[in-house]
């Protein structure tokens, strides 16, 4: 053990008999991390997403402007040392806009997650836990939403709600919650009759308590894996809505909308619409890789074969 640097923490993390729940939790996390970090593909995805988050956090520090300020004398300049990705039709620095756009992307993804995960968890766990006609009814509704064409329905919804970032998020959320309910229900069905739930019930725990403290936490990991895998799709749909002019509105530096407004300059100033597309491609690749990696670590049953 002396050969390993910093033996204290490592020994603590690998101890056969953890002394506290906290230590056990850290150990589990550490073991998951070692499997995860040994997977180069997953790590690539992780690093991409980390870079995205860092870019969003430190946008004011790593850009020269706010991504909205126009400098009409600097229109449509090709990439140079002053403007790494060139400037757009209003003289805005594209690098700045890409970096600030990472905030928009993260906001979309986070908002969709915040809406979709609780809805899916509540519907799924309640259906699975209560069973009977409640289960039947909820799952019928879920199946109907599961069968809907997502993009077209989101389009129609945005057309009703009116274009805008929040409405695009809402439309995406309405069309994506159903798989989470299915997953949560399936998990609940396997947990429902397990001994620890029966023990808790014998001690007088109410259904609500059983659901919130015992069943929901166990459903979370599969739901989160699914969410990570879905993130790329969510980003692509949001960018598509932005491209059609139904998502984030100008001057917000949303990547899809940037492609749409740069489209007319494709032939002569190719960098204007091309660079934002690269950003979308890289980030959605990142989420796909991360999702695959997480699934391998947290859910070895269905590890990518």
């Amino acid at each position: 053990m002396s050969a390993i640097p910093n033996p204290g923490i490592r020994a603590w993390l690998l101890s056969e008999s953890p002394e506290s729940a906290m230590q056990a939790r850290c150990q589990r996390f550490y073991l998951a991390w070692t499997t995860f970090s040994a997977n180069p593909v997953a790590m690539a995805g992780f690093l991409i997403i980390l870079a995205l988050i860092l870019a969003a956090l430190f946008a004011p520090l790593i850009t020269g402007g706010d991504g909205i300020h126009q400098e009409l004398s600097q229109r449509l300049l090709p990439p140079s040392t002053a403007h790494w990705f060139g400037t757009d039709e209003l003289g805005r620095d594209i690098y700045d806009r890409i970096v600030w756009g990472s905030r928009v992307t993260l906001r979309i993804v986070a908002l969709v997650g915040i809406i979709v995960v609780p809805i899916g968890l509540i519907i799924g766990t309640v259906a699975g836990f209560l069973g009977g006609w409640v289960d039947n009814l909820l799952m019928r509704i879920t199946d109907i939403f599961l069968a809907f064409p997502r993009l077209i329905l989101a389009l129609a919804l945005v057309s009703v709600l009116g274009p805008g970032l929040e409405n695009a998020v809402l439309a995406i959320a309405i069309t994506t919650w159903s798989p989470y309910a299915r997953i949560a229900r399936a998990e609940t069905l396997t947990i429902r009759n397990s001994e620890f739930v029966q023990a808790a019930r014998a001690q007088g725990a109410s259904s609500a308590r059983l659901l919130t403290y015992h069943i929901v936490p166990l459903c979370l990991s599969s739901v989160i894996i699914r969410l990570t895998l879905d993130m790329a799709g969510i980003i692509l749909t949001a960018a598509g809505l932005g491209f059609l002019g139904l998502g984030a509105q100008p001057p917000l530096p949303e990547w899809g909308a940037m492609i749409a407004s740069g489209r007319q300059f494709l032939l002569d100033q190719w960098w204007v619409p091309t660079v934002p597309g690269m950003a979308i491609l890289i980030v959605s690749m990142g989420f796909n890789l991360l999702g695959d990696g997480l699934r391998d670590v947290l859910d070895p049953k269905s590890a990518a074969r």
């Binding site: 790329a232 692509l236 960018a239 598509g240 491209f243 899809g256 492609i259 489209r263 494709l266 032939l267 190719w270 619409p273 091309t274 934002p276 597309g277 979308i280 491609l281 959605s284 690749m285 796909n288 890789l289």
Partner: peptide, 22 residues
């Protein structure tokens, strides 16, 4: 495969028009 389901189709279409048509 990764490219296929990560790429925004509208952008991919635009770039392919730029390269192979224009």
């Amino acid at each position: 495969g990764l490219f296929g389901y990560s790429v925004p189709v509208f952008w991919f279409g635009m770039v392919s028009l730029l390269v192979f048509y224009a």
